[in-house]
Nucleic acid binder design. Structure first.
Lengths: 126, 126
DNA sequence: CAACTGCTTTACGTTAACGTAAAAGTAATA
DNA sequence: TATTACTTTTACGTTAACGTAAAGCAGTTG
């Protein structure tokens, strides 16, 4: 089964069909057509997956498009390749910052939870 | 110096004063006043820092408010404590998911970069 | 063949997170 | 004292990322 309908993808990734069409409007997806109907390839499915992953990371759709385009072949121009490497490093920097943020937040959450549990216990003893 | 003006914070965190006031409108900050002028305590500064960290992680301001409120004392009610622990676990789940997403993205970026460099080298040999 | 079911386009509406501009108060400084 | 630098409130504007509704085509199912 190397094909997906829009509603199949919509169900699999728990987004509306409107959302998927929206991504196409913005040029992030370009599924084939059978007549008028959109037909999604596994590659299209992967692109969608990447977009949604980007969303979870707080990237804008434009950011996601940039990242996704990095994976595309046909970047023959040397300047483009260099630009790409720069973009990749920028993204990596952002992601590493996020890692720091997350670890700090997790630490805070652990402390908050510990305080909570402590408060619960002492209330049980009152 | 246990005090900050709005423009001080604005410069330190590289956001506009409008942004800081916006957070106050939404109830995320509540600085003291000297006359009409806002006066920010170190605690206020920390709250702002947490908000911005949340933003970098893709949280909504409402999400951030929830998390920040977790650190507040005075949560005497047992039901509230339990609800809090639940919320903490939800957040932790989301963060762990983000960690997975990031590690996958970093992996992809590494591959994209390697491909790039490879393409550059082969182009140099042509 | 009528009624679903699922797909399509078109287009206006909505929410979050601020931006931007206007008008005015206050305090230090030239 | 006039200007400069900072602050305030009020309020309309903007962008991203969809939501939602309307109207219609295409296949198949009772």
């Amino acid at each position: 089964m190397a094909e997906y309908s829009i509603s199949q993808l919509s169900k699999e990734f728990e987004v509306t069909t409107r959302t998927i069409r929206h991504y196409e409007e913005l040029g992030l997806l370009a599924p084939a057509r059978r007549g008028q109907t959109r037909v999604y390839s596994p590659a299209d499915r992967t692109r969608l997956k990447l977009i949604l992953r980007g969303k979870r990371l707080g990237l804008s759709l434009d950011d996601s498009r940039e990242i996704i385009d990095m994976y595309e072949p046909g970047k023959t121009n040397i300047d483009q390749l260099n630009k790409l490497i720069g973009a990749i490093q920028t993204q990596r920097h952002k992601l590493n910052q996020q890692l720091d943020d997350i670890s700090m937040l997790l630490k805070d959450l652990n402390k908050a939870e510990a305080d909570c549990i402590k408060a619960l216990k002492s209330s049980g003893l009152t």
